[in-house]
Every structure is written in structure tokens, then in C-alpha cells.
Design a protein around this nucleic acid. Structure first.
Lengths: 339, 339
DNA sequence: GTGAAAGCGCTAACAT
DNA sequence: ATGTTAGCGCTTTCAC
């Protein structure tokens, strides 16, 4: 059977309450008792039962992370720094997978087993943040945000508009005029903002983004591949801005299949700079988002709000930088039709 | 304040115990009451407190997964199917990160908050499996095992020896004689078995693996790159067997830096077939391990043992298959020195 | 500085 | 079919 604090109390010759106090180094326990209790606990291999403790303290030192499918390489890239930050602060990460269809299960979020929640998969119109807030559970949205119609929300997101605009500048500077984009879903802030930032910056430089060259698709590898294949067939371009690296990887895959050379025949630019993007055989030109910094900001704020629920929420926007690698070039004279 | 079953009871006009029974569809509750209770619970947004339930049932429907750093692409590849299997069976995955230095924290494993544990980072000599077993917590080792000196252990591992032998056969058949290996750490079953299987199979074909051509290093990208660079400088080979895909990716990176063409100048073969290996620009020849099947076997067995602790443990060995892609070739006459 | 007792919210055993 | 009661293991008053 399980070792309880009563067992430890018997062995140390003290009361059960003293065991509880001594093991938590509460003031009001003598050095001597503390040692006797510690020894007894160690000898018995005592570990306090989490449910017992949590029932009375209303704390679990566990934080839920709502994430998309881990087979999508973006999520491990985002999850890794979040997990590091949580663990370094003494919190245990609980995965709440969101398959993207029905949204995440809500029971584990509301059953009191989590001190806070990190949301990374939010889509416009989701009722989840409101409900989490109503129940008084601290949360933060990382990478994706949902437009707060009214009050502010704790968010940590990259500067999507600036990043996309930088890509537009790059493409125009290189001389591309026939450009397209694999945009993300319209109901994600990353998808919407990166498309808007790209289109607006192009327009400022006098380049129009043809409707046929805009494909709003899920942030998946297969969507990237298939959509790129279709785009090349229906509306050829010399440069393709992909709203994230996963889509860009798919586009690279499509280009390879179709015998298009990158960057000679096609320029591909991504967004995020996940570790995969910098692999030698990939060398993707992309907008680098410091996901570690994003996670640090988010978790620091989240933990602060666990400790002080009255703390005002903060909206952090992370600077991004264009990372030039090997998938961009000027259009070839024969291919790049200009005016 | 939090909504409790007492609040629901008041609203439904029944006792608190009836609420508990009705919401769990226990036999011995009338249809009518069940509906009234459900309605009241829904109206109040009632979700049972996990710690209260867990304290009495001794079940949490949470399973811990001890994993290595998520920045190492092998772990997301393994974690993804494990998480899928757990979630589809109604369990929530709790991440217990093992940085590889001090081993994972043990308190969250022993504090009664997990119904079972999945171990993926085990090293020879670790006391963890013994201690988990002593405490009566169901567990299974996936991918890595530790030699059970005595009783059997629940394990799900690939056939490392057969896989490594298949690579040896391939290299010999291609005509390679100067071969090397980036082996994994000696205290991991994957590292030790893949090296042994490779060396023995080579020996059977009359090829000796030179001690200088064996490098036992951590399963990381940087170790792969750096060790490959060193190996090429000190003891050039025409074919390199890497004990996993991550090391192989590192080797590919090193080859690219040194201007070695793959596969013309160098054959590189990996192990695992993580998703990255099949990316178009990578095309790694490797030993495919069906990690989804591995996870399915492991979690099915684990869940069966949660439900029936008396169940005898099973040791599953997963068949592997050689996946030929584009990083292997016969040695070039000039380079491949034979007899 | 320490013990006794209450109580967190739930399930389960026992009545009826 | 439902109410009453006990109790899971812990933290936290409240005495002393």
C-alpha cells in the first residue's frame, strides 16, 4: 500500500500535521524535528499524494498546453521552448491536443487540475478563451491570437505584418512581379495578418497580388505540396511567399517533383524559421521568429498571473527578422515577365 | 467560486451523491433524475474536480511520458504516435522531460497523479524502472529498453540487430569495404544493439570495422555533424552507418560543408525513418521503424495493465525494413579502395 | 513548536 | 432509486 504522511508521522514520533509542516519547511518547526521527519520520509520513500495536496491548496503546479498535431513540425518547434520555460519554473506540462476539427477537450482544462493554460491553436470565433477567462483560469495565447472584441487578452505573437512586408520588399527588390502566396487559414491571426501584411506592402510598391495567386490553406506539409502543384499549373509565378515554413517545405517538395529549380526557377520564402528550415539540404529563406523569446515572454507572464491573479494582462509583440538563405534569387529574364 | 456537486444537487433537488451517480450513468439512477441532474450541471457549467475524484478513485486518466529534448527531432516523431494512442483511449499525456543529465524528476511520477508511465529515454543502470515497479505503477519502455537482470519488463523496441545487419548487407553488396559508423551511446539499447548488429553482420561478410571508424556519440544533430567531420579527417570511409536518422542528418550536414557529394563520394544510411528523412531535399536511405505500430503496441499493453495490474508483461519486438532512398551508392573506383 | 480537529470535493458503502 | 455517512490524504486553523 501507499505510504502516507501518517506512516511518516508514526516513524518520526510526531503528529501528521507536523510531517506536513516539516517537509515544506514551514516556519514553526524546529531543526531537530525537521530532520527526524525528513529522515523518516526518505526511509519510507514518502512522496505526498498530489490529489490530496491539490484538493486543499487548489494548486497543481501543472500547466496545460493546447497544441496542434505533433507531426506538424511547427508544433514541436513551438512546444520545445514552452516546455523548457515551464519546467525551469517548476511546472509540469500537460498536453491538450487539438486536432483542429472539434477543438481541444475542455474537461481537462476545467476540472481544476491545471494552474494555467497556454493556447497555441486559437481560431477566430473560438469560445474557449472566453470560457477559460470566465472560470478564472490564467491563460496566455502564444503565436496565434484572437481579436479581442472589448477587453485585452494575454497574448504573445510575432509581428506578422512587418515580417510579411519584409518578404514583399525582398521580392520586389529582386525584381519579381509575378508573385503568389500560400496563405494560412483566414481564421488564424497568423494566416490573416501575414497575408494582409504581404499584400499591402506589395501594393505600396505597385505590385498587385492576383486573386488566383492567393491560396488560403491549412498550415500542413501536404497542403503546401498539393496547393503549390496546383498553383504552378494554373497561375505560374516566379516567387512564392508561404505563410509558414511548413507550407514552404511543401512548396519545395512540389518544386522538386515538377523539376523546378530553386531558386533559379522559383523563389520560395517561409515564415517562422523552425529548426528544419536551417538544415543544410533545405536552406530556406524565411522570416525568423524567436520562438524561445516568445515562449519566455509568454510563460513569464503566465506564471506571474498564477501568483497574482489580479495582474493586468499584457500583449507582447515579438520583433522578427528576415533570414536570407538559399531559396531566393532574382527571376530569370526568360521566366520573369515584367510589365 | 467554483461550482461543486452540492450546487448541482441543490438546483436539481437531489442529494449530492445522486449527482455523482447520475453524471456517471451509474446503474441505480432513474432516467428522469439523470436528466434533471444533467440539465442542472450543464446550466451551472459544472465540471467535477479532478483532485476530489482522483483522491478517492486513485485514478487520474493521465499518463506520464518521459521524453528527451523536443528539439531533437526524434522525440516529436516518437511522441506523436504515443500521444495519439493515449488520447484516443481517453488518457491525457503529461510530459516529463529528461534532459539526459540528471534523469527525469521523480516526484511527479510517484505522487499518484499518473495512472502509468511511458519511458523512452532509459539508459543502462538507471534505477528508475525498478523504483517505478516497486511502487506498483504500470509502465512500459518504448524504443529503448534496459537489460532486465532477472524478471521480464514491459518493452516495445525495434529489431535493432536485424536492421543494422540489413544495412551491413546493403553496404557490402554495394561494394563498400571502408565503412564507418556513428554509433549511439553505449549505455542505450539502441546504440549498443545497432552497433553490435552492424559489426557482426559485417564480420560475417568478411569486412572488419576498424576501431577508429566507430564513434559512440550522443544521438544529437551537432554530435552527428562534428563527429562526422572528425571521422572524415582522421579515418576516411566510403560509407557511414548512423545509428539513427538525427545522426545521419548531422553527417549529411558535415558532408555538405566538406564538399563531399552524397551518394557519389559518401554513402550515408540512418535508422528510424523519422518524417524528416523522407523530405524531398533529404531523401535519406534508412531503416524504417514503424513508430506508430510501436506506440500502438506499447500503449495497448500499458492500458491493459492499468485495467488489470495482474496482467503479465509483454516484450514486443517490432520488425523493421530497409528503406532505400537517395543517399546510398556503390563506392567510386577512385575512392573505394578494395583489398 | 507541536497536536487535535476540521474540511477541501468527490466516490462508495450502507441504509431505506 | 435515492439519501446518509464515511473517508480518501493532505493543508490549515485553532489550541496549548
Amino acid at each position: 500500500m501507499r505510504v502516507t504522511s501518517i506512516d511518516v508521522a508514526k516513524r518520526a514520533g510526531v503528529s501528521q500535521a507536523t510531517v506536513s509542516r516539516a517537509l515544506r519547511d514551514q516556519p514553526g518547526t524546529s531543526q531537530a524535528t525537521r530532520r527526524r521527519v525528513r529522515d523518516a520520509a526518505r526511509e519510507l520513500g514518502y512522496v505526498p499524494l498530489e490529489s490530496g495536496r491539490s484538493l486543499v491548496t487548489r494548486r497543481s503546479r501543472r500547466v496545460g498546453i493546447v497544441v496542434g498535431e505533433l507531426s506538424n513540425p511547427f508544433y514541436p518547434a513551438l512546444l520545445d521552448p514552452i516546455v523548457r520555460e515551464l519546467v525551469s519554473r517548476g511546472y509540469l506540462p500537460v498536453l491538450i491536443p487539438d486536432d483542429g476539427e472539434h477543438g481541444p477537450p475542455t474537461e481537462p482544462i476545467f476540472d481544476g487540475s491545471l494552474d494555467a493554460v497556454v493556447l497555441t491553436t486559437s481560431r477566430a470565433g473560438t469560445p474557449l478563451p472566453d470560457e477559460i477567462e470566465r472560470r478564472g483560469i490564467p491563460f496566455v495565447m502564444v503565436n496565434r491570437e484572437v481579436a479581442p472584441h472589448g477587453r485585452a487578452r494575454a497574448t504573445c505573437v510575432p509581428d506578422n505584418v512587418a515580417g510579411a512586408a519584409a518578404v514583399a520588399e525582398l521580392l520586389v527588390d529582386l525584381g519579381h512581379t509575378r508573385v503568389g502566396t500560400l496563405a494560412g487559414p483566414a481564421d488564424t491571426s497568423t494566416g490573416a495578418q501575414r497575408l494582409a501584411g504581404f499584400r499591402d506592402a506589395l501594393a505600396r510598391r505597385g505590385i498587385a497580388l492576383h486573386p488566383d495567386a492567393i491560396r488560403q490553406v491549412p498550415f500542413t506539409l501536404t497542403a503546401g505540396t498539393e496547393t503549390a502543384v496546383a498553383l504552378f499549373a494554373e497561375h505560374p509565378v516566379t516567387a512564392l511567399f508561404c505563410a509558414n515554413d511548413v507550407l514552404a517545405l511543401g512548396a519545395l517538395d512540389a518544386a522538386a517533383r515538377l523539376g523546378l529549380r530553386v531558386p533559379e526557377d522559383l523563389t520560395v520564402v517561409g515564415f517562422d524559421d523552425i529548426p528544419l528550415a536551417s538544415l543544410a539540404p533545405v536552406g530556406l529563406t524565411t522570416v525568423a521568429v524567436d520562438l524561445a523569446a516568445l515562449a519566455r515572454q509568454a510563460i513569464a507572464h503566465l506564471v506571474a498571473r498564477i501568483d497574482d491573479p489580479g495582474l493586468s494582462v499584457r500583449e507582447h509583440q515579438q520583433e522578427v527578422t528576415l533570414r536570407l538563405r538559399r531559396t531566393h534569387a532574382a527571376p530569370e529574364p526568360s521566366t520573369g515577365a515584367s510589365r
